[in-house]
Amino acid sequence: MQRIFAADIGGTNCRFASFSLVEGCLNLERVVWIKSAGLLDTDMVLTALERELETPLRAADALVLALAGPVQGGLRGKLTNGALRVDFTGLERRYGVARYRVINDFIAEAYGCLTEIGEQARCVVSPAEQAEIPATAGRGVLGAGTGLGTASLVHDGRGGWLPVPAEGGHVSFPFAGDEENDFHNFLCRELGYPFARGDDVLTGKGLSLLHRYLSGEDLEAREVGARALSRDTPTLRWYSRFYARACRNWILTTLCRRGLWIAGGIASRNPLSVTSDYFLEELYTTPHFAALVRSVPVYLIENKNSGLWGAAQAGLELLRREAH
């Protein structure tokens, strides 16, 4: 029986999992969460993985680590919101693992759409315009948590899928109207930036700043979610509108006609932010290509281990390529 070890490391949480392959399908055996703080290098991560999974690394047929930050060459990467740096160069010699890869966390989320997690995701926006969508149409992924991540999947023409990385969270965010531009000026003053990115607007940091701007209350993101995203408040109205605008822009950027999957902790913990009427109204507000946007279903990934499933799917792809 083949086994895949997966890790999904964000700015706040680090997740480890062991998967077995049963008739070619992923089967989750064990999953453990720890805090990312204190993990500074490759050896610290791999030592923690062996300890938490209670299994030596050499027992894995493949190891894939998903990291919330830039990745180079499938071997090296660093956390955007953290001190961790990883380097898998020479991992076979050091730990006895033959197949391994470092991938961006939203590449993992994209791969996760191909697993049972993607199939189980909650449809929060059904297509307003019914159309024949080919099975090979592209898929998009977007989500906000500690950072804002984006990715997509395109069909390779041979029955497989290619993940396309992106840094959409670091693109300047589009504000509309005087009220929103006043908020933009506030953000720039608070952050010391010449312009605000999606990463500054939709993440936990952005949510806290938005709530402070609208209410005067200085709260952590989780407190804002519990107090202001669970019912109709100005914070919900603004945040839902901003989230929908990011989703609409990503649909148009990637042409993900098969669907857009929303990941990340903020939406999964506060689903009203992507199911409210404010979200739907903004999603469909576009003077161009309205029919395209209306034809795309939007799904909410509620499983908090979706990145682990995606990393395991990436490991499965490694094994499949070797088999062929």
Rank of each mutant, 00 (worst) to 15 (best):
E223D: 09
N270Q: 08
A48G: 03
F106C: 11
R99W: 10
M1Y: 02
R258S: 11
F88P: 01
G192W: 08
L319S: 03
I4Q: 09
G264H: 09
Q130W: 08
Y278A: 07
R122P: 00
G307K: 02
P287I: 07
Y278Q: 08
A196G: 14
I301G: 00
N249S: 06
S20I: 02
T42W: 06
V86L: 12
G264S: 13
S208K: 07
T89G: 08
R122W: 00
G145K: 00
T42R: 06
V102I: 12
A196D: 10
Y243S: 06
L67W: 15
P174L: 11
F19H: 14
Y243I: 00
I262A: 02
D277C: 00
V298F: 01
V298R: 03
L46E: 04
R30Q: 14
L91F: 02
S240W: 02
S126V: 06
A7T: 14
L214G: 04
A110I: 11
F186W: 06
Y239C: 00
K205R: 15
F183E: 03
L236P: 13
E282V: 05
L187K: 02
A290W: 08
V32P: 05
C256F: 04
V64P: 11
A290P: 02
S18F: 00
V31R: 01
A144F: 03
Y100S: 10
L162C: 12
